[in-house]
């Protein structure tokens, strides 16, 4: 099993690099953000992890149409993922809409 894991890591070493570099990007991007923006920022990040819906769609596309259980679960996964994406971005936009108005007033 250990061999399998080492092989997996070796075969996917670029993903390892992406993992490390993205961690730093995430830290860098958030650094020194004013507290005022914490809520919209959290909400925006919340919408971005809705990218998990891509996985749900991949699962669905590869599902055997005769496997009803998998179809039902996949349908639910796509539905919930869409809620996360659409709801997340829409809520964030609504919050930020209020920030936008201010300087004009």
């Amino acid at each position: 099993m250990l061999e399998n894991i080492v092989n997996f890591l070796g075969e996917n070493i670029q993903m390892g690099y992406i993992l490390i570099l993205m961690i730093f990007v995430g830290v860098e991007v958030i650094g020194n953000v004013p507290a005022v923006l914490h809520t919209p920022l959290m909400s925006g990040a919340n919408a971005i992890h809705g990218v998990v819906i891509v996985g749900a769609i991949i699962v669905m596309l590869d599902t055997d149409p005769s496997n009803i259980a998998a179809l039902v679960l996949g349908f639910l996964a796509v539905l919930l993922g869409t809620l996360n994406v659409v709801g997340g971005f829409a809520v964030t936009d609504r919050m930020l809409e209020m920030f936008k108005k201010k300087p004009g007033k």
Partner: peptide, 8 residues
């Protein structure tokens, strides 16, 4: 996307 949100 996942790691970015995880880290941020």
């Amino acid at each position: 996307g996942g790691i970015l949100v995880g880290s941020a």
